[in-house]
Amino acid sequence: MTARSEIRVDPHLDGLVGEKHYLPTAGGYALGVLRIAFGFTFLWAFLDKLFGLGFATPAERAVVNGGSPTTGYLSGVEGPFAGVFNAMAGGAVWDVLFMAGLLGIGVTLMLGAGARVGAVAGAFMYLFMYLAALPMVNNPVLDDHLSGVLVMVVIATVPASWSFLGLGEWWARVSPSRFLR
């Protein structure tokens, strides 16, 4: 009698069949590192704007010193969407949403838990920044914001990106919704 090997598919872990991933292990680790790097980018932007660490935000414009994280960037927008973004600049609601977005996207991507939601939110944030940067100066079509959108789409849609180097597999088992992964 020959032994039959069973392949178990866990519906909670998209892209995982038994213990093996669709992507080779090295690819999974590369996607995990990419997710963490982008998470750190968002988390760093949050910390710099909150405390004015002197990189993109000087101390006197820090949120903890009464500064607005949206005023500097959005008040200087030119181009086809200038009116919309200029009107949003400095608004308390937009400031809170922007800071919450940076923090939430950064934490979910760094941890891997909830990375799908974080990546979708990150894609929208990059898309808004792209629209605020129109017209492009160096390349009339593609810039780093659209590249960021594409990376966020990969993170949101390829399960290996959140299951390697993080809490993604655990979160996939305990999350109440497939989308919340």
Results as ranks from 00 to 15, higher is better:
V9H: 14
V9F: 10
V9Y: 07
P11F: 11
P11N: 12
P11H: 15
D14E: 07
L16G: 02
K20W: 12
K20V: 12
H21E: 05
Y22P: 01
L23A: 15
T25S: 10
A26N: 07
G32V: 01
L34E: 06
G39Q: 04
F40E: 05
F40N: 05
L43K: 06
W44Y: 14
A45F: 12
A45G: 07
L47K: 06
F51I: 07
F51W: 03
L53K: 13
G54D: 10
A56L: 04
A56N: 05
T57M: 03
A59H: 14
A59S: 12
R61G: 02
R61M: 13
A62Y: 01
V63L: 15
G66S: 10
P69A: 07
T71G: 11
Y73E: 10
S75N: 12
S75F: 08
G76L: 07
E78I: 11
E78L: 05
G79R: 10
G79M: 07
F81I: 01
F81S: 01
A82E: 08
G83A: 15
G83F: 12
V84R: 05
V84A: 14
A89Q: 13
G90E: 02
G91F: 02
G91S: 11
A92P: 02
V93P: 06
W94E: 00
D95N: 15
D95W: 05
L97H: 00
M99L: 11
M99C: 11
G101D: 01
L102P: 00
V107K: 05
M110N: 06
M110S: 08
L111A: 12
G112Y: 10
A113V: 12
R116L: 04
V117C: 07
A119T: 10
A121D: 00
A121L: 13
G122K: 01
Y126M: 14
M129P: 02
L131Q: 01
L131G: 01
L131S: 03
M136G: 06
V137W: 06
V137S: 10
N138R: 11
N139E: 04
H145V: 03
S147E: 10
V149M: 09
V151Q: 02
V151Y: 01
V153T: 13
I155Y: 02
A156S: 09
A156Q: 04
V158H: 03
A160Y: 00
A160G: 09
W162R: 03
W162Y: 04
S163D: 11
S163T: 15
F164L: 08
L167E: 06
E169D: 03
W170T: 15
W171H: 09
W171N: 00
A172D: 14
V174H: 13
S175T: 09
R178P: 12
F179P: 05
F179R: 15
F179L: 15
L180I: 03
